[in-house]
Nucleic acid binder design. Structure first.
Lengths: 152, 152
DNA sequence: GGCTGATAGTTAGCTTTGCTAACTAACAAC
DNA sequence: GTTGTTAGTTAGCAAAGCTAACTATCAGCC
């Protein structure tokens, strides 16, 4: 990986390029690892992530959901279909604007989310728990920055 | 997202569960964003990542490449085919063991990697550059931890 | 030498999840 | 009431992940 080599072409350690590059690499591998935990729960990462928005964000439109998840509307539309088929969410037509579909979580969706989330991050959480207190603090301090870089 | 709500079911802020959960969410959104930059360069993230291993790791077998990228062998085999079709890598049969295939970068591959990497992380690097010095330090301090959590 | 089992890759086929383009339905405005 | 805009859906494509099944080669062992 880019972050693991010591080429003379590598950006200066600590430079914006270096940080960006290593962050990218770390994010790729972190997610590859977590995907396996997702599989174990029977609900894929995109579904779980969308379900999470619905559960915590209340009834929400397809468009807003797509924006929140940073995917296109057709992608989200299909994702909602599969979530509905699985009985995890429900489509509710908007009362005043009949073009709009509001998506809300079912009880099964809420239950699964909480169980699924727990399982999904369990392996990662265990490793986080294994860090020293200062390390954990360092990680915690970086999280708002990551969220900001992720584009929120 | 899980990290944005204030449910009573949410793990304690700063707990291992909380850190793990928010990290997961941030990683998902960070990569979604970067994928667009990848598209602009004409080389997808998995290809660029594999190419990176080949360029910096020297001639490497398909199996080792798959292990390094944390994917199964058939997935990597196909990825190498597309990289070879694009003229970015070359298959070289091993001299002593004719079952193994060594993959090495072409000059075009090396050139593209350096150009592509630069473009790919450019948007992210720009945002990183916009952080304050202490923020950048906080991010830098967290990177080794992320790399560790990403697994080995 | 010649079986037998292990190992490296490939091929085939399926699934999920992205995308764009083109469509329908409903609303808003004039 | 026509015209343009907006919300979602449908259709069709590509990338990238997986497993299962296959080929080819190698290593051991009698």
């Amino acid at each position: 990986m880019p972050s693991r080599q010591a080429s003379t072409r590598a950006p200066r350690a600590g430079s914006a390029d270096d940080v960006a590059d290593r962050l990218h690499s770390a994010a790729i591998h972190l997610l590859r690892r977590l995907r396996r935990e997702d599989d174990a729960s029977g609900v894929s990462a995109p579904r779980l992530s969308a379900l999470s928005v619905v559960v915590f964000g209340g009834p929400v439109t397809i468009g807003d959901l797509a924006a929140a998840e940073q995917v296109r509307v057709p992608t989200m539309s299909r994702l909602v279909v599969t979530l509905e088929e699985a009985g995890l969410v429900q489509r509710v037509p908007d009362a005043t604007d009949r073009r709009v579909v509001r998506v809300e979580a079912t009880e099964a969706g809420r239950t699964l989310l909480h169980a699924g989330r727990r399982r999904r991050v369990a392996a990662l959480a265990a490793d986080v728990g294994r860090l020293s207190a200062p390390q954990r603090r360092a990680l915690l301090a970086a999280i708002p920055l990551l969220e900001r870089l992720a584009g929120r």
